[in-house]
Design a protein around this nucleic acid. Sequence first.
DNA 1: AAAGCACGCAACCGCATTGAA
DNA 2: GTTCAATGCGGTTGCGTGCTT
Length: 340
Amino acid sequence: MGHHSCCNKQKVKRGLWSPEEDEKLFSYVTNHGHGRWSSLPQLAGLERCGKSCRLRWINYLRPDLKRGSFSPQEASLIIQLHNILGNRWAQIAKHLPGRTDNEVKNFWNSRIKKNLGPHEVIPALASFSNIHNPSITGSDQESFFTTLITNPNLSLHQQEQPYLPSLTTPLPLSSFYHDDHNTLKLDYTNNTSNFLHFPSLVQLPSNYSSSYDSSGSLGYQPHQFDPNHQHSQVLNSIEVAPNFNIGNELIMVPSMASLPGYDHENLSVVPDMPQFCVNIDVSVKLIGVRSLMQSYHRCQYLHHRCLRTSAASSSLSPLQNSHLFITNPNVHSSLGSLSS
DNA sequence: AAAGCACGCAACCGCATTGAA
DNA sequence: GTTCAATGCGGTTGCGTGCTT
């Protein structure tokens, strides 16, 4: 077991850092910044390898580090994120301001892991890893979503959504209009990329009242919806359904049957879709299990649609480009690939 | 009081990835 | 396109500390 190449070139000290070494490193990085760790030790007067300096800075000296034990909220978040991300400690740590990957990893291995017995599989993990297994139904699926919903802090950064080109903002009221049949429709004019990017859930003003339609049919009340809206610039549309209230918030999600190419008579898809990657955004914070289940089914539908689309054109990327995205109002969240 | 033990944490190691030449 | 150094990351080690016997 040799040392790193950077450590072979010079006499390096190993083991715990002394206060004097910390002072040298802190002073140097504070004054000069970092960026070239390999040359830093010599410049800073340290007999350490660059890697050791980097680690010491990141895990201990960085001024933005949070000290002290993890709060219950942080622990909960780590568990939730670990269900989704696995042992990707650096990714997990990014959601815990002031915490390092090393810290999170140590915390997991020393505290959480031992408290989760072999039979205590967290529902989110079990359900999500099997999300495309048709045998996973009903309560299992629901427990998966429930786990998400009960953690309002769940939020993953955009970089974990490799196929999401930009953050989605809630659609304004002006995005909607009524068609000739008085059906509420959503402008769909922003599909400029390879992405058929569904809008986020739409949050309407609290004075807009509607009731959740438990039958799953379109339950909105058109006369209550922005009667003055002009829709002369509508280029395309997606029907929106169903909507429902949670507290004072009205939630709307795109209807599966409103997708371009959907064959209403045969309940199937016209396989000439130009887009092969679909993002579905739903609000974890505001949404209920039922609507998440509806979104899940939509994802399944889209999954199959992507399959068919990919098969229809060899130039299209395969299915691994299909992702389910769940978002909360703060940051978007990727739950992983839909590909199996 | 001393030895043994368990635990937490800091640091190291090797591999993977990135980016410059 | 290839090489190689730098950097990033996750697994692992080992030291220090506190508890138990």
